[in-house]
Write a protein that binds this DNA or RNA. Sequence first.
DNA 1: GTATAAGTTGTAATGATTACAAGTTAACTA
DNA 2: TAGTTAACTTGTAATCATTACAACTTATAC
Lengths: 146, 146
Amino acid sequence: MKPLFDDLIDVMKKHRLRISKQRLKILEYLVHNRHHQTVDQIYHELHPDLPTLSKTTVYNTMKALVQAGIVKEIGIDEHETRYDITKEEHGHFKCESCHNVYDFPINIDDGLKKGGLEGYLVNSKNVYLKGICPKCLLDIKLVNTD
Amino acid sequence: MKPLFDDLIDVMKKHRLRISKQRLKILEYLVHNRHHQTVDQIYHELHPDLPTLSKTTVYNTMKALVQAGIVKEIGIDEHETRYDITKEEHGHFKCESCHNVYDFPINIDDGLKKGGLEGYLVNSKNVYLKGICPKCLLDIKLVNTD
DNA sequence: GTATAAGTTGTAATGATTACAAGTTAACTA
DNA sequence: TAGTTAACTTGTAATCATTACAACTTATAC
């Protein structure tokens, strides 16, 4: 269920967020590039197109989108915050070789043991795995069989 | 399965880590206070007892313990790294009100859907939930029923 | 007991993120 | 459609956890 651009604009309006040129470009970029980019990556990708763009604006916009529930923060790596604009529940896998983040299907509730969270109010759930992705595993094998 | 102090010393020796006064105190503290403290907390708790202790030493020691497999990093919150010295699989819940981190039982593999991670080599798994803990929920209710 | 590699320490550097203040603009109203 | 104003944008400076570094100290092996 990939949210459409126009739907997201409506969500922004409902949250009384203004639709600026900068925010439109950032939102458009997020919708078309679902690879969990960092603020730095978003900034550098959009800068050629929008030369006055400031990194502070990207930070501000991402914070506003998070508060509006349009994107979710991904904290799989200590040193960088990434973002997720997809709605379905899924986990995140970070490859320790190429550093890309991949989605994978998951049902977190299936893993929760009964009674473990009795009385807790749960607002957000994240599953983070790390390891080596298939592409990098192949590269490693190719190097080793020289 | 709580690892015993002496077992951990052996693990350190196997990894060719020296047993300094500082490392002993830190390890002892971690074994007896399993609340996923940050470096800053560990430093401030041990400082009265070990006045020459440097925060850099705590950072260095935690890194060494992670590499030796004795503790695991917990990245549930962007702005702080916490540590875990318990071996059994479990998830982490961070209360957004009191900021404490609680463990809860989980079996991550039960939630993984078949085929979702075909071909991936998984090295580590983390489940992070956020919300309000029972104690804080009670406090909130008490305030609201005035 | 000595040698030396490893550990400790304080200070400086790094890097992501936030604070702030001045200028700009989206959106509402008349 | 113009005027008003709160919200947004921007660049710079501040913050804060973590790391780098270099001099000093010590655990461990011989």
